[in-house]
């Protein structure tokens, strides 16, 4: 029997020492995504029906490219954390849960990196 109080156990975070990082990272990315999402929403409205050359002109700005990379990085990380919780909550068969978690993890990395590389590709002039 442990003599440690519940509060002491929580503060010590057990032997893993990092029990809250998932929750904290989800909140950090959420906070970052508030201004980024507003910018993104305004951008897709402004770029509605834009031609390819207008799109390239827009993406050529370091501010646009920078904000887009930040949005993609924070967004895909937030998505990975969120989908992980949804899967862990609702998929109760172990092999299905593990498979779904792997697909989400790989998918977020692949799509996120491909999107970021597309932005960098355009910004550096193809």
């Amino acid at each position: 029997m442990s003599m440690q109080s519940p509060l002491g156990r929580v503060r010590g975070l057990g032997s893993a020492k990092n029990g809250t990082h998932h929750w904290w990272h989800q909140r950090l990315t959420a906070l970052a995504l508030i201004p980024l999402t507003l910018w993104f929403a305004l951008s897709i409205v402004a770029m509605t029906g834009a031609s390819h050359s207008a799109m390239l002109d827009w993406m050529n700005s370091p501010i646009v490219a920078g904000l887009m990379v930040l949005l993609l990085a924070a967004g895909f990380y937030h998505l990975k954390l969120g989908m992980q919780v949804v899967i862990e909550d609702y998929v109760h068969v172990e092999w299905q849960k593990i498979t779904a978690l792997i697909i989400v993890q790989f998918g977020c990395w692949a799509l996120g990196l491909a999107s970021i590389m597309a932005v960098v590709w355009v910004w550096t002039g193809g």
């Binding site: 967004g75 895909f76 998505l79 949804v86 799509l111 590709w121 355009v122 193809g126």
Partner: peptide
Amino acid sequence: GVVLGVGTLLLAWWLIAAA
């Protein structure tokens, strides 16, 4: 949240198509 996750396919398509 899940819809937005599926929607990232569209976002990736948009950016990769532009490139």
